[in-house]
């Protein structure tokens, strides 16, 4: 059985927000190390991978590996019933057909305990083996900055070309009616304050769909920083780390004909 108690429901709410538009159903793989989710979008262009460490929970118990097949739309609805600061406990039996969620709040006048149950499903999903990659460029920047760049450029065109060079990291969008490019220079003072960093072994140029990057940026509520890992001709890794775990997205590049 699984019993996992989170100190704030807000974490799950934010994670669901960051995943539900890419994936409709997914297995939450629970084991003694924690809870993990890995799923691709329908078009097999993007993959999202979430990890919540057992140590990130107020209490965590999982006796044996348990895949919980979750409809993310249903879970989103059930989580809407929780207040952000409610203590949230997830429970499932070994048959994994029902997920129960308990929300506990202490208000000034009374203790409130709310209990919800949702049906689980069998999901037959292909698990992809993600190879370990030594990336040629690694860029860390404020997640709010990345959100703003991809949202702005998505107004102009469908794609963004990302160029990492000695100059810094440049985001370029060529739309039909307008184009734009944004350069972020390596700034000694800023990197000293650990606002961001650009590390590069060799120059990288890659093109990606902005629709997906805008979607990934929903994770900005989970972490103040985002890390972009890139090598030519391989999928981009966009990683957000937070205290209890991480969310990572992989996005296949676009290529010229």
């Amino acid at each position: 059985m699984l019993e996992a108690k989170l100190s704030e429901a807000a974490l799950l709410k934010r994670l669901l927000d960051a995943v539900k538009e890419l994936v409709s159903d997914a297995n939450f793989e629970c084991n003694e190390e924690g809870i993990q989710l890995q799923a691709m979008d329908n078009s097999h262009v993007a993959l999202v991978s979430v990890k919540l460490y057992a140590s990130g929970f107020k209490r965590y118990r999982c006796d044996r590996p348990l895949p919980l097949g979750v409809n993310l739309g249903s879970l989103t609805k059930v989580l809407k019933c929780a207040k952000d600061d409610d203590i949230c406990t997830l429970k499932a039996g070994d048959d994994a057909d029902i997920l129960s969620l308990t929300y506990e709040a202490k208000s000034a006048y009374a203790d409130r305990i709310a209990e919800y149950e949702m049906k689980l499903m069998d999901i037959d999903a292909d698990q992809l083996g993600i190879p370990d990659t030594d990336y040629d460029a690694s860029v860390t920047m404020p997640s709010s900055e990345f959100l703003r760049i991809v949202r702005d450029l998505s107004l102009l065109g469908e794609s963004v070309r990302i160029e990492v060079s000695k100059e810094g990291i440049r985001f370029v969008s060529d739309g039909e009616a307008a184009n734009g490019n944004i350069l972020i220079k390596q700034n000694a003072e800023a990197s000293g304050k650990k606002k961001g960093s650009i590390e590069m072994n060799s120059a990288v140029t890659l093109t990606f769909s902005l629709k997906y990057l805008v979607n990934f940026s929903k994770s900005s509520s989970l972490s103040k920083k985002v890390q972009l890992m890139m090598s030519n001709d391989v999928p981009l890794l966009v990683s957000y780390a937070f205290n209890q775990g991480h969310i990572r997205y992989y996005l296949a590049p676009k290529i010229g004909d």
Binding site: H44, L47, S159, Y250, A252
Partner: peptide, 14 residues
């Protein structure tokens, strides 16, 4: 003209 690739080309079934 640019073409969107899929992840299957890069990631094997694990």
């Amino acid at each position: 003209m640019v073409r969107q690739q899929t992840l299957g080309k890069f990631f094997g079934k694990g």
